[in-house]
């Protein structure tokens, strides 16, 4: 456990060396939230989306973006490590490659996500107001956020292991990214989808990564909290087993030349 924490800390501190870049890293979240806020505002002048108010939907958009940026994209690193063979130096160490990657990705992304949240939050507070949040809900929300981003990490990791067979798994990850956009509730809440698609997508693991956590943040209720945490626990268990299985099969397929 100490090794993973140390790696997390190293990556976190490394990112802190580039303060200006860290600040600008959150700028993308601000621009995107700004554009979508104006889109929602135009729509709300004539209609509504699900049970969301304009204030709730604007903050939902921001939180969705922050969650997506927090979990990282292991596919880039893993594809590269498999292509150039450096993955061997991680696999022959007495640490689990899965958790080693998780520590690295969270360390790399945490401050960027926070920067996006702070900048975007200030902007939204000026544009429409602050989201009413009770202090007692903060810890349960942070837990849900962490588990949600972990589901995204494990899914991304599992897809990245395809690089053992096809060398570059990034194109597969593009598609996964877009599935999150539409069926994970990233671009808009699932309430916009037609009833059939809504029923299916609300059961997918991606919904437990963006849609439910972001919805909980703007419409907190304890029954919703317990429903989300139950779903997240099941998906984390199943997906972790899957990730370990794929990694084991993939490493058998690995062939590295040279030293």
């Amino acid at each position: 456990m100490n090794a993973y924490l140390a790696l997390f800390k190293v990556n976190l501190l490394e990112r802190l060396q580039y303060k200006w870049d860290l600040f600008l890293g959150g700028f993308g979240t601000v621009v995107y939230t700004f554009a979508l806020f104006h889109l929602w505002k135009a729509i709300y002048s004539q209609s509504t989306i699900g049970t969301f108010t304009l204030l709730a939907l604007s903050w939902y958009t921001l939180i969705g973006q922050v969650l997506r940026s927090a979990g990282g994209r292991p596919v880039n690193d893993i594809s590269e490590q498999i292509q150039n063979g450096t993955i061997v130096s991680f696999l022959n160490k007495p640490v689990q490659f899965l958790y080693l990657q998780a520590s690295t990705q969270y360390g790399k992304r945490l401050f960027q996500a926070l920067s996006g949240f702070l900048l975007g939050g200030v902007m939204l507070s000026f544009l429409i107001g602050f989201i009413p949040l009770q202090l007692i809900h903060l810890l349960p929300l942070l837990l849900i956020f962490f588990l949600g981003t972990y589901i995204n990490f494990i899914l991304g990791f599992s897809l990245a292991t395809f690089a053992f067979w096809i060398e570059d798994a990034r194109p597969i990850h593009w598609i996964y990214d877009k599935v999150i956009f539409i069926f994970g509730g990233f671009l808009f809440p699932l309430d916009i989808l037609p009833a059939g698609l809504q029923a299916i997508s609300s059961k997918l693991p991606m919904a437990y990564f963006v849609y439910y956590p972001a919805k909980l943040a703007v419409q907190f209720s304890w029954p919703l909290f317990w429903q989300i945490i139950g779903g997240q626990a099941i998906y984390i268990l199943v997906l972790t087993l899957l990730a370990h299985y794929l990694l084991r099969r993939g490493t058998k397929n690995l062939s590295v030349n040279g030293g």
Partner: peptide, 30 residues
């Protein structure tokens, strides 16, 4: 690689069209 990347990029873009398609399911114009 060329055809794979082109194909995946097309799929990637389709997602955005779906976004507008679903959004306009209940709206005539914005």
């Amino acid at each position: 690689n060329f055809f794979l990347q082109s194909f995946f990029m097309i799929l990637n873009n389709v997602a955005f069209i779906l976004f507008w398609y679903f959004l306009f399911g209940t709206l005539d114009s914005i």
